[in-house]
Every structure is written in structure tokens, then in C-alpha cells.
Design a protein around this nucleic acid. Structure first.
Lengths: 336, 336
DNA sequence: CTGAAAGCGCTTACAG
DNA sequence: CTGAAAGCGCTTACAG
């Protein structure tokens, strides 16, 4: 379309076609885009104008071949369908765009193929990787990424930088909040075994229990998959306990529990209080809204991209912890 | 890592390093990957083996520069955070992977920048575009994509192929279902004006009403944004009507309405019945589960990719309609 | 089925 | 600040 703007620009616009029209060298045209400060102001203006007129779009493949960089960051998520990931992906995309990079998405579960195989292919196509995929085994992951700069999200592997959400303090707050509401019998629903987040959250709640008032009792159930159905199915077992305060691994599980309890005629927060974790979309679209711990998705994504940039520059960032924050909503109330 | 597997492979693995080790030409090595059937079986085997030993990964930028194709398909979504899109993106990604392509994701709302600008940049980086972004104005969209092969999802623009979900039949079924439950007073909550889906759904329900039993009355409210809060805020207005059967533009709106009604002490499905549309994750994680119309995400994505392949081949596919299907769950019941 | 060679459109060290 | 030239790693028409 834009090619028709000028009569001269019948051919595909390249740095050469621009150079020719302006009677200058392609090197200069190239520099006008890759290192603008290296070229004379006025010349640059004319180049940009001509580029525009010709409908020039820099050929990324050519640049990539010449520089060895693709301008792409690979984002690997466990399952884009899990509402935890979209806000993260969006934040990453936003940050990447600001750095003039694009996001190559890989849904680790979407492939018929082995996720590791796919990851390996991906690695060679991107400048760096942001991996938010708690399930890929450490060794497979390490092998697949080779020496592609990588930042982990919500997972730690020695030797790789990571940015994680630390909910320890927020979970303590959540528990304290329940104590203030008069709860004494607590039930922790543990997350999937082998999940980094699950381990941390369990530890946080147990640690809290040690310093809790004497009349507080903490029981546990699990591990559970982080899924609605899982929570729903667990409702009976939960109802069989005398716990009034339930701390679920995540929002999914929490919502499932609430649904399952409802089926049993047990009402939240009237009969039991439930708190989730992550504050995914779900948490605000159930009625009543879920009391939970908010994950700082924006920051997680932003910082992950920033760290990746550092790695690319040869720096060796450490691990970064961002705190989640407790938010009391409708599923916690006075102990019955 | 893999470079260290053989002593010879100190240098970066390329078709040349492989050719050299094997004493053959780079052309043959190249063909072993790009057109395997053109090279002798045994030779190909040796090439593949050596490639593996050297840790060779085909340089996509170089291939892209040579062929003019990137192996990338751009996927533009309105808002990845809206649960309608992730299942679609996943299906697209899956299908693209099978065609040996990767997905470049663009969240139309994620940019500080103009979505159109971003789209334009994206276009030049991909072999084709799948656009599921109902908001970008037609003209801006057309200009931005230039002559990049494009397939639209859930939107039609003359001159561009599209795959859309047609819920007409399913919505009629939903309405009939409500009639069978004894409902007579219907209320349609219309979706955002200018939205393709909203227009279609409104038409479907109105058409149904024309052929409905005489004692059925259809009132309307709207347009509404497809958001939980919007539904919540509309609850009072809805409660003020005498409608017992509420057909919401989509699941979000429906869930919001249910939440808002609950706040007013009105219970769904006891006092009113509500049906949504799309069957996003949300629909199955609320209690009771939402009666709604399921969108065939997998097919939408799969077909979109297939059509894009066709366009790339120079074919001109038409518009494809895939039907949604009605699913009765917990938010519809006998008229009070 | 295989090889030699040109070309894809950039970047950048080098020289000026 | 600018230009000439080599190089990035593939693909493919052409000749054999």
C-alpha cells in the first residue's frame, strides 16, 4: 500500500533504495536506524522522511543475521489458560515492547510435542527466555535452554536468576486476620508437591502457626492440584474437620472448596472462612469476592524483563523477591 | 554445552561446519533440513547425526533472510487478561507449532503505544497475522496490516477472511430452555456497541423472540461493557424489571449480574435465571456454575491457523462460521 | 542427487 | 560524520 505513495518506490524499500534516492551510502541509512546519534541530524531527518515515504520497514531477519540478536524474548508459561499467567504475560509483553522487543509465546502444555523439545527450538530463536513454568524438570530445563540468557519467574534454580513472589508476610497477615475474627481451628490445603510456590506457602503457614496464640490449631490436607474441581471434591473431607478457617494453596483451590462446601449446604463465610492466594481474576468475580493474597503481576513481569536485559549484558543478577499483599474481602468473617 | 560433545565442534555449528566435517557441500547440508527428500537417504542420516553431535540449531534469521519468511505468526488479542482469549491463543499456538511456526503475541491493550503502530511493526516480522481484537478500528487495522496475510477471529471485515463463532442457534436453544422452565419475561443485556459479537447476539435473541410463544416478552437493557463490575452495577436496574429470565451478552456480564443481584438479596437461580455466553473459565468456577453457550475455542484457533496457511499459499478462503453450543448448568431453573 | 555461486538486507570495523 | 566492503548463515536457480 504505502509503496504506492511515491512513484519512485515501486521496489521493496530497503536501506539501499533509501540510500539511492538520497544519493548517500547504505551505511549511513543503516546507522540512522541502528545508531541514530552517529549520523548528522539533518541527514537523519531526510532519511527518516524518505523511509516513511517509501514505506520502509527494517528487516528484522537481516538485522538479526548481522547482529546475532533477534529482538525476541521467549516467554514460557505452564498454561496460558491458568489465569495466573495472562497478567504476567501482559506485563512482560508491555515491558518488552518498551525495550523494542517482541514476545514469542510458548505454552508448555499446548504442544503435542515434548515441551523440552519445543523449548530447545525456542531458545535458538530468541535473545532471552523468561520461564514461568513450574513443572518442567530442572535438568530438562537447564539442558533445553543451553546458554540462552534466562530469567525464572516464581521458581528458583541455582545458577539462574529469578524473580519470585514471596507471600510469607502476606500469608501471616491473612492468618492473623483470621485469628482476629475469632478463628482457632485452622486448616491448610497444601498445593501440588514439587511446586516451588506450594513449598513456600506451606512453610509460611507452618512458621506462622509456631508463633500463633496457644489456642490456635493448624491441621493440614493435601497435596492438592491447583484446580477448581480438586477443591470441590475435597469439600467433604474439609467439612469433616472442625476447622473454621481454611487457607487454600491458591484461588482456584479456594473457589473450588467454596463451591464444594456450598453443595454440602455449608456457606462461606457464614459457616467457614476461606482465603486463597494469587488474586487471579477469578478471585474478584466470585460472589462473595475472595479474601486472598495479591501477587504483584506487573512488577514480576517488569522486573523479569529488566533482569533479562541485565543477563544479556553479561551481568549476573541474583534472585529478586517481591512481596504479595493480603487483601481482605468477602470470604472471611467472624468464627461461627 | 552441546558444543563440547565433540572435540572438533569448538566453533559455532553451521551448515558449513557440518559440511566440512563430512566433506560435502553446504548446499547439501542445507537441503537436508529445508528439503530432505532432495538428498540421498544415507547422506541425510549422516548430516543429521553430525548436526546433532555439533549441537546445530538452524539459524532462523538466516533462513528468514534467504526465504523471506520468518516462521512466525503474529497473534493479536484485545486483552490477554480476558479469559476468552487464552484458550484461543493456546489453540493457535498448538496449531502453529504443528506447522513448525512460532507465535508472536501482541496484546492490543498492553502497549503504552498506539496499538496500530505496534501492529504495523509486528506485521513486518511475521508471515501472517491472526487478529482477535474487536476494538481496533477497521481502517486502522487495514492500514496497519498492509498486505500481510491476515485472518480475523470473531470479526468480519470485507476483503479479509475470518473465522467466527456463530451462537445464533445456541442462543435460541438457551431461550427455548428458559421457556420450558416456565419463564415468560425475558431481559436481554446487550453487549458493547460496535462489537461484532454483540450485534450478532442481539439479533439472534430478537429473532428468536419473534417466533417465541405469544406470552413471552422480551425487554432489553444496554449496551454494557463486557465486565464483571458492569454487570454488578446493573443489578439494581435489572431487579427493577419484572424479568425472570436474563440473557447476558457474555459470561462476565452474567457473573457480575449474579453477584450484584446477590448483594440485593436476590438469588440465582432461585429468584431469577441467568445465562451467559462464551463459557470462559469463569463460567465453571462460579457457584452455581453458569448456564451458557460454549465457544469452540480449539476449532476457532485451529481453523484460523489453517486458513492463514491457505492465504499464505495465495488462496482466498472465505468466511467460516463455527457454531457455539448451549450448555445448561446451575444458573437457570424453574420460573419462580 | 550434488556443488558452486549469488543473493537475501542488514551491521560494523576500518579508513577517511 | 560518512563510505566501501566484508560478513552474518541460510536458500535456491543453475549446471552437472
Amino acid at each position: 500500500m504505502s509503496r504506492r505513495r511515491t512513484g519512485a518506490a515501486r521496489v521493496k524499500a530497503t536501506i539501499y533504495s533509501i540510500a539511492k534516492e538520497l544519493g548517500i551510502s547504505a551505511s549511513t541509512v543503516s546507522r540512522a536506524f541502528s545508531r541514530p546519534d552517529m549520523v548528522n541530524n539533518e541527514v537523519r531527518e531526510r532519511i527518516l522522511a524518505t523511509a516513511d515515504a517509501q514505506g520502509f520497514e527494517l528487516n528484522r531477519a537481516a538485522r538479526g543475521l548481522a547482529t546475532g540478536r533477534t529482538g525476541l524474548v521467549g516467554v514460557v508459561v505452564l498454561d496460558i489458560t491458568n489465569p495466573f499467567f495472562p497478567p504476567l504475560v501482559r506485563a512482560i509483553e508491555h515491558a518488552a515492547n518498551e525495550a523494542d522487543a517482541s514476545v514469542l509465546l510458548l505454552d508448555a502444555e499446548s504442544g503435542g510435542r515434548d515441551a523440552t523439545e519445543q523449548l530447545k527450538r525456542l531458545s535458538s530463536q530468541v535473545d532471552g527466555l523468561i520461564v514461568a513454568s513450574p513443572r518442567i524438570p530442572t535438568n530438562a530445563l537447564k539442558e533445553a535452554i543451553g546458554n540462552t540468557p534466562t530469567v525464572l519467574v516464581n521458581r528458583t534454580i541455582s545458577g539462574l536468576p529469578s524473580v519470585v513472589c514471596d507471600n510469607t508476610a502476606a500469608l501471616r497477615q491473612a492468618a492473623d486476620h483470621l485469628v482476629q475474627l475469632g478463628h482457632q481451628k485452622f486448616l491448610l490445603l497444601r498445593g501440588p508437591s514439587g511446586s516451588w510456590a506450594a513449598t513456600r506457602r506451606t512453610a509460611a503457614v507452618r512458621d506462622w502457626a509456631k508463633t500463633a496464640p496457644d489456642d490456635v490449631e493448624l491441621a493440614e490436607l493435601g497435596p492438592f492440584e491447583a484446580a477448581f474441581e480438586t477443591g470441590q471434591e475435597a469439600a467433604q473431607r474439609i467439612a469433616d474437620t472442625d476447622a473454621t478457617a481454611i487457607i487454600a494453596f491458591d484461588d482456584f483451590l479456594a473457589c473450588g472448596v467454596i463451591g464444594g462446601l456450598a453443595d454440602l449446604g455449608i456457606s462461606v463465610p457464614h459457616d467457614r472462612s476461606v482465603v486463597g492466594c494469587d488474586d487471579v481474576l477469578l478471585a474478584r468475580t466470585v460472589t462473595p469476592q475472595l479474601t486472598t493474597v495479591t501477587a504483584p503481576f506487573d512488577d514480576l513481569g517488569r522486573r523479569a524483563v529488566a533482569m533479562l536485559t541485565d543477563v544479556t549484558r553479561g551481568e549476573t543478577p541474583g534472585d529478586l523477591k517481591l512481596p504479595g499483599s493480603f487483601v481482605a474481602r468477602g470470604t472471611t468473617a467472624d468464627a461461627a
